[in-house]
Every structure is written in C-alpha cells, then in structure tokens.
C-alpha cells in the first residue's frame, strides 16, 4: 500500500468521523442529506460482501467494518435520534434516488469484469458511489446551509478522492499489469462531482458570510 492510498483512506475515514462528531456535538443534522447517507450505506454493504469470502488484510477488514457501521450510525441518528431527527430537512431532501440506483444496476449488469453475483454487486457499488453525493449537492443548492456541513467535512471528502487518483497513478507506474478501467472512470466522474460540490460550498459560504455581516 502506498502513501496516497493510505492518506486517502484516512481522509475518507476522518470525513465520516467529522460528520458524526458534528451531529453528536450540535444535536443537528440540518443540511445533511439522508438520501446520500443511505446511498453510501448501500454502496458499502454491496461492495464489502467479500468480507465473507476473501481476506485481504486486517487493515482491510477493520476499515470495511468501520465504513459499514459508521454509515448505519449516521442513518440511525438522522432517522431515530429524538432530537437530531427533528432537525432533518425532509421537505428539501427529495432527490429521487431511483434515478441513480436503477441506471447503476443496469450498467453493472452490462459492464463488469465477470458476470457473477458478488462481482456485479461490487461493480454496482462502484457506479453508485460515483453519483451518491448528488442528493447532498441538490440539498445544499436548495438550502444554502453551510452550518452543519463544515469546511472540514467537504475538504476531507474532496481530499479523499484526489488522493485516490494519485494512488491509481502511482500504482499504474509501479505495478506491472495494474489496470482497472471501471474504478478509474467511475472515480474520475466522482471527483468531478465533488469539485462541483466544493464550488457550491464556497458560493454558499461566501453568501452566508455576506448575510451575517452587520450592515
């Protein structure tokens, strides 16, 4: 494992921890899309089914279990926590996730490495992860809420994607025969969407700053 991959995993992990701490500390999930969080849970569960079939390393297993449990933890807070659930913007968070899930299912059935249950589910999770941030992006555009989505959370998510691209470049040049077109193309799309997300974040932040300045 190279330093880019490890740093990417750590920033991904930190982004989730930051989001959880934020929800726990402020007892609020205003501005957080439950639909995006649920898509991430679907992504992790469908991708990490191989926990039952293959062992790669202790690191790998621990991280997979962390991603699955933490995503369900965020969902639990947003749906069932007595105080936090009342702060959820359910009227604004209306993105139709079927528009993302259904095309990803078909694409995974058509374009995959091997037509088997586990492999198609893995491919589906790669495609779905690349677009799972969209409900969050739409919610941010609607509410212009930057109070709960801290600059840290957005920064860490973006950093995670950027570091994974560096990891792929590094592996491509150092590991003979290393190539994974499905992951590369999906990852590039995902990074482009995150750049858009970051752009709206900056716009929202600047707008909020103007509004909060004394006249």
């Amino acid at each position: 494992m190279n330093i880019f991959r490890f740093a990417g995993d750590m920033t991904h992990l930190c982004s989730i921890v930051v989001l959880l701490l934020k929800i726990e500390a402020t007892k609020s999930c205003a501005g957080v899309s439950l639909r995006t969080q649920e898509l991430y849970a679907v992504v992790f569960v469908s991708r990490y089914l191989d926990l039952f079939f293959t062992f790669i390393s202790v690191y790998n297993t621990v991280m997979k279990v962390f991603f699955i449990t933490s995503s369900f933890c965020i969902i639990w807070y947003m749906r069932h926590h007595r105080i936090v659930s009342q702060t959820y913007d359910r009227e604004q968070d209306t993105f139709r996730v079927a528009f993302l899930v259904v095309p990803c299912i078909f694409l995974a059935l058509l374009v995959n490495h091997e037509f088997s249950m586990v492999e198609v589910l893995w491919t589906f999770s790669i495609y779905l992860e690349s677009v799972a941030i969209l409900p969050q992006l739409i919610l941010l555009q609607r509410t212009f809420n930057v109070d709960t989505l801290t600059s840290n959370y957005v920064f860490l998510l973006g950093a995670y994607r950027a570091l994974y691209i560096l990891n792929w470049l590094y592996r491509y040049f150092t590991e003979p025969g290393y190539s994974q077109w499905i992951v590369w193309s999906s990852g590039t799309l995902q990074t482009a969407i995150y750049c858009d997300f970051f752009y709206y974040y900056v716009v929202s932040w600047r707008k909020n700053e103007r509004l909060s300045l004394p006249s």
Partner: peptide
Amino acid sequence: VRGVAKHDEL
C-alpha cells in the same frame, strides 16, 4: 474482459 480484478482497495 479478462477475469475478476483483485479488489484490494476500499
């Protein structure tokens, strides 16, 4: 496509 790729990333 040639075989199943090794999914060693997260």
